[in-house]
Amino acid sequence: MNNTKVQNPEKQIPTTKSMNDRDFVNDMLATEKYLSQSYGNAMNEASNQVLYQDILHIFEDTQNCQRDLFNLMFKNGWYSLEEVSTQTSEQSYQQFQQYKQQLPTQ
């Protein structure tokens, strides 16, 4: 089975020099992804539990916003996924199982 794209019909947008809906949503998605990574780093560095909890709540909100933007892009056909065969998926699973076995046990 060949890899095929999983995508909704693309919502047409005007092609102009100005930013369109797709451009704005794509920019917001990239920003939310960056913020999620940054909040993750901040949580790793937080030495105060109250501060950690505050950042965690903001991180969760940011992750939810990122997911909503991804869903919006996918719904409008502006984001596609690659469908893989069961065999490819199983090969990846086996590869990571081997990696897992190489980790030290407690």
Rank of each mutant, 00 (worst) to 15 (best):
Met1Ala: 15
Pro104Gln: 10
Phe59Asp: 06
Arg67Glu: 14
Glu60Ala: 11
Arg67Ile: 12
Gln12His: 04
Asn44Cys: 04
Met1Leu: 15
Asn48Ile: 05
Leu35Tyr: 14
Tyr52Pro: 06
Gln53Asn: 09
Phe96Val: 15
Ser47Asp: 10
Tyr93Gln: 08
Asp27Cys: 06
Phe96Lys: 04
Lys5Cys: 11
Asp27Gly: 07
Leu69Ser: 02
Arg67Thr: 15
Leu81Cys: 02
Ile13Gly: 14
Asp27Ile: 04
Glu90Ile: 14
Ser36Met: 12
Gln101Tyr: 10
Gln7Arg: 02
Glu10Pro: 08
Met28Pro: 07
Ser85Lys: 06
Asp68Lys: 06
Asn64Ala: 03
Pro9Asn: 05
Asn2His: 13
Thr105His: 05
Gln94Tyr: 06
Leu103Thr: 05
Asn71Met: 02
Gln53Arg: 03
Phe70Leu: 09
Gln7Gly: 00
Lys33Gly: 08
Gln98Met: 07
Glu90Pro: 06
Lys100Arg: 11
Asn41Met: 06
Thr62Phe: 00
Leu35Cys: 10
Val6Cys: 07
Phe70His: 06
Gln87Lys: 09
Glu90His: 14
Tyr79Cys: 04
Asp27Pro: 03
Gly40Tyr: 01
Asn48Ser: 09
Trp78Cys: 01
Val25Ile: 06
Gln106Val: 15
Thr15Phe: 10
Val25Ser: 01
Asn71Asp: 04
Met28Glu: 10
Lys75Ser: 11
Leu56Asn: 14
Gln53Asp: 15
Asp54Trp: 06
Asn26Ile: 04
Met43His: 03
Gln7Leu: 07
Ser85Asn: 04
Gln12Arg: 05
Leu69Asn: 02
Asp54Phe: 08
Leu103Lys: 00
Thr16Ile: 11
Asp68Trp: 02
Leu56Ala: 11
Met28Phe: 03
Leu103Tyr: 00
Leu35Gln: 11
Leu81Pro: 00
Asn20Cys: 00
Ser47Asn: 11
Tyr52Gln: 04
Val25Tyr: 01
Asn3Cys: 14
Tyr99Ser: 11
Glu90Cys: 10
Tyr93Ala: 12
Gln37Leu: 13
Met73His: 00
Asn2Leu: 15
Gln63Lys: 03
